[in-house]
């Protein structure tokens, strides 16, 4: 392994690093929004939409991201939907992540103690008020650990973007290897790059879990 080579390839990896972060960020935000909508539909038992969201959840969770990306990037243009590789990547991440986030959030909402719901009803709160003042603040807090695990999972999944030639970290590493045989150096930098994203993030998320839990429940 050569330090000269590492110094030489760092600039492309820095670019790839920011791209990975950017795509992850949009994908995760989108996934959380989709997840919230899907979990609310299920929690409030909204007719029809709830069934549609259940079908979505099954399809999303039981197909690989790889195949989802192939569909979005290669099959959709056949029916007239043509988007850039980055947009396809973000869409794929949202499609996959949305269902995982939905499960995480629904689990939290469902985990709110029944007596909390009943005491809310007993003071005359409507279903909507109950959700706003009691169930969501407690339920979302309960779902934070699962959401955090999904955040980490989705960032790692961006490595699959390489199959639609998005120059994120994994793609960049494979490129460096394929074009210049910088195998050791590229894999080394690749691992370091993911670690720089994921290790601090998981520390921050763990801290956040504890903090919000304390805030909401005092333990």
């Amino acid at each position: 392994m050569s330090w000269t080579v590492i110094q030489q390839i760092i600039p492309v990896f820095v670019q790839a690093f920011w791209l990975t972060l950017k795509l992850s960020f949009y994908g995760i935000i989108g996934a959380i929004i989709v997840g919230m909508i899907a979990s609310f539909l299920r929690y409030f038992k909204v007719p029809v939409l709830r069934q549609i969201s259940a079908v979505y959840t099954e399809v999303s969770r039981n197909t690989p991201l790889l195949i989802q990306l192939f569909f979005i990037y290669y099959a959709f243009p056949e029916i007239g939907i043509k988007i850039s590789a980055s947009a396809a990547g973000i869409s794929g991440l949202i499609f996959l992540g949305g269902s995982y986030m939905a499960e995480a959030i629904y689990g939290g909402l469902n985990g709110v103690a029944k007596i909390q719901v009943e005491s809310g009803l007993a003071i005359g709160l409507s279903r909507g008020q109950l959700a706003r003042y009691v169930v969501f603040p407690q339920g979302l807090t309960l779902s934070i650990p699962a959401i955090a695990a999904n955040v980490i999972f989705l960032i790692k999944e961006t490595s699959i973007f390489t199959v639609i030639a998005i120059p994120e970290l994994t793609n960049t590493a494979l490129d460096q290897i394929g074009l210049y045989y910088h195998t050791d150096e590229s894999l080394f930098v690749l691992v370091i790059a993911y670690a720089i994203i994921l290790i601090p993030l998981s520390i921050v998320l763990t801290w956040l879990e504890r903090r919000t839990r304390r805030g909401a429940f005092g333990n």
Binding site: I115, E118, S119, G120, A122, Y133, P137, T141, F217, G218
Partner: peptide, 12 residues
């Protein structure tokens, strides 16, 4: 009004 067996204040 109703009060339950478990002390059911909203912890948040």
């Amino acid at each position: 009004g109703m009060v339950f067996q478990s002390y059911d204040l909203f912890p948040n």
